[in-house]
Nucleic acid binder design. Structure first.
Lengths: 141, 141
DNA sequence: GTACCTGCAAACAATTTGCACTAAG
DNA sequence: CTTAGTGCAAATTGTTTGCAGGTAC
């Protein structure tokens, strides 16, 4: 996982200005494993920045994705989720509660997938869908 | 690939009624390899059904997905695409032109991914992103 | 000082919903 | 005959855009 310093220099390398809102979003996402949505980021930052807007959240997260500091997940059809975890891993989306779980992945598996194409691949996402144990427990009670 | 007869009995098994609109959507999707969007289905059916609505297209495709006759792809952040191809394969989404390409996949690769979780998995999607050869050609000219 | 960034509000666009009418079984 | 499906229009909702003022550098 990147440090704040690494993230800031990655942004500077892109010619981006370091604003307090961008620092706050970086700090909020750093090390998170719960894949917050834009709404979630908005709610959590409203305390510190009562005037923060979705325009800023979306533009900043797109910038962070370009700098490869986060991935923007579209595992959930309804809204995007942000993931700062750089390690290759799959995502499991529970179709009942909407939770997103990380699933570990072999480097080798990614290599195997890439073997089947010679297209230029910038990004790879592996999404699994089903009912999570938590929800199955509730459903069978 | 399923035949129309198989598709119809799969729908009946679900207790669904066989309407002319549903047959038309099935016929349109059957064997398609170009991942049409809802808009695309709408445009293509307007000739035969001048009054067909998006409500029908969305509800029917959801029904077909439940019957496992098609998959609803969310590889494109903007809109869903329908895929009647039941064989395990990945999807490549060109970030320039938006085209979606099929990428073959080993059964074994899917097995490897599933090994890392004991969650119930109904569906697995593998999405690759990048600039396709067609677009790269244009970009470097 | 000047480009870029922010926040607001409005625009956008894909999908969903409510409801009266119609058609399948 | 009864239940489910269709089509329409309106609602919904996540995301994007235009622009005026503000801020990093």
């Amino acid at each position: 996982m990147w440090t704040m310093e690494e993230a800031v220099s990655a942004l500077k390398r892109q010619g981006a200005k370091i604003t307090s809102q961008r620092l706050a979003i970086l700090r909020l996402l750093q090390g998170r494993r719960d894949h917050p949505s834009a709404e979630c980021v908005y709610q959590e930052l409203k305390g510190e920045f009562p005037t923060i807007s979705f325009a800023t959240i979306y533009s900043t997260t797109q910038l962070l994705a370009q700098a490869e500091l986060i991935q923007i997940l579209t595992v959930d059809n309804k809204r995007v989720h942000f993931d700062p975890n750089p390690e290759p891993h799959a995502h499991y989306h529970c179709i009942h509660c909407g939770r997103i779980y990380d699933i570990p992945l072999n480097e080798r598996t990614v290599g195997e997938i890439l073997q089947h194409t010679d297209f230029q691949v910038d990004q790879i996402q592996i999404y699994l869908y089903g009912a999570c144990p938590e929800c199955l427990k509730g459903l069978t009670q």
